[in-house]
Amino acid sequence: MSIKVLVVDDSALIREVLVRMLTRDSDIVVVGTAVDPIDAREKIKQLNPDVVTLDIEMPNMNGLAFLEKLMRLRPTPVVMVSTLTRKGANETLLALELGAVDFVAKPSVDLTGGLEAFGAGLRDKIRAAARSDVRGNSARADAPKVAVRTAAAPEGAVIAIGASTGGVEAIRAVLTQMPVDCPPVVIAQHMPAGFTNRFAARLDELCALTVVEAEDRMPLRPGHAYVARGDYHLRVERSSGQLKCRLTHDELESGHRPSADVLFESVAKTVGPMAVGAILTGMGRDGARGLKLMRDAGAYTVGQSQSSALVYGMPRVAFEEGAVVEQAPVEAIAARLANALGKLKSAA
């Protein structure tokens, strides 16, 4: 079965580029294009697409306003096409909060060298969106949260989290429940350069924790969370008796940079049984190998359950390969991590 896609963008050039890139593989069919949300509304009714690509800045109705109505009235997997600007990053994060599955950075006119890579990434995201559970995701937004009063742990403990598609909301769900007495949190979320700083700033607004984009050799402090910078690997290292962030621009790992495998492997080596880890929603297998190393080193590990994952790819592989101690719905993961940290404290 082919994936039916509707392309919505007011730029004729961008529509042409997206259609050309999407139709490179036979499993994706562009059933139509629309120039604005009014046009898109009618095309969605007529064509019943499996996935919609949506621009934010359009005439007649803002893409965010249209997305909010679409997710409320007719939940449909949406991939946003975003500009690489501060405003574009802010609006993209809001779109993900409103229910968009993922986003791609809008190709520029001079992107000839990187157009093939852009197209491959776009097609992968369309496939993930087609497999995502947006209807279940909107229902899960009302799931009761598990209160976490304390996540205190011995000095030297670390929480490591890895995620991809759907991870922006899943990470928010976990971090907003974590109290300020928790140990340092290190995060690898698949996200390009230019977006992770705004992602960290948005989390910082919503969480009791202080959330920042990681910087090289930044010391890890309790009550703080560190988001891997887009296009950089984040590792945890110990130097001068202190745990610190280490950022590098070496090769892609498991197809990604930042990679959850790279982060988890460093935590396994550096923190060992004093760590706890979680692998959340996402496409592919990144994180499974590294999380297995964490578990083998004595760390508690949890995977997001299929019922609560927008895309049950990374957590599924981690579960099948024995990398997780248990699986849990996203609203319960903070409590599971806190409970494991409490056991570390009791044993210390």
Score class of each variant (00 low, 15 high):
R235Q: 12
D216I: 10
R235H: 03
Y226K: 07
R217D: 13
A188E: 01
L252I: 01
I171R: 07
V186Y: 08
A170F: 08
Y226F: 07
V211S: 02
T210Y: 11
P184M: 04
G166C: 09
Q242C: 08
E251L: 14
R172Y: 15
I161R: 01
M178P: 11
N197R: 15
A200G: 01
P219T: 08
T176M: 14
V212F: 07
A157C: 10
V227N: 12
K244H: 13
E169N: 15
P222E: 03
R235W: 00
P219E: 13
P222I: 06
R238K: 09
A157G: 06
C182I: 06
A208K: 15
T210M: 11
A157R: 10
S254R: 12
L206Q: 14
A170D: 01
A170P: 10
P222D: 01
H249C: 11
M178R: 12
E215M: 04
A228P: 11
R172M: 15
G223R: 01
R238A: 13
E215T: 14
C245G: 13
A193M: 11
G162I: 06
A193W: 00
S239I: 11
H249P: 10
R235V: 05
S254G: 03
Y232Q: 10
A173G: 04
I159H: 12
F195Q: 04
L234Y: 12
R217Y: 13
Q177H: 10
A208P: 03
L206G: 04
L234Q: 10
L234W: 00
I187K: 00
A214G: 03
S254D: 03
V168M: 07
D250G: 00
K244C: 14
L234V: 08
S254M: 12
A225K: 04
P219R: 01
D216E: 07
I187Q: 00
R246G: 14
S164G: 06
P222T: 02
V186W: 08
T248F: 07
R217K: 11
F195T: 00
A225P: 09
V227I: 14
E253H: 12
L175I: 02
S239V: 11
C182W: 00
L206H: 15
R246C: 10
G162A: 10
V168Q: 06
V174Q: 02
G162F: 06
M178I: 13
M178F: 07
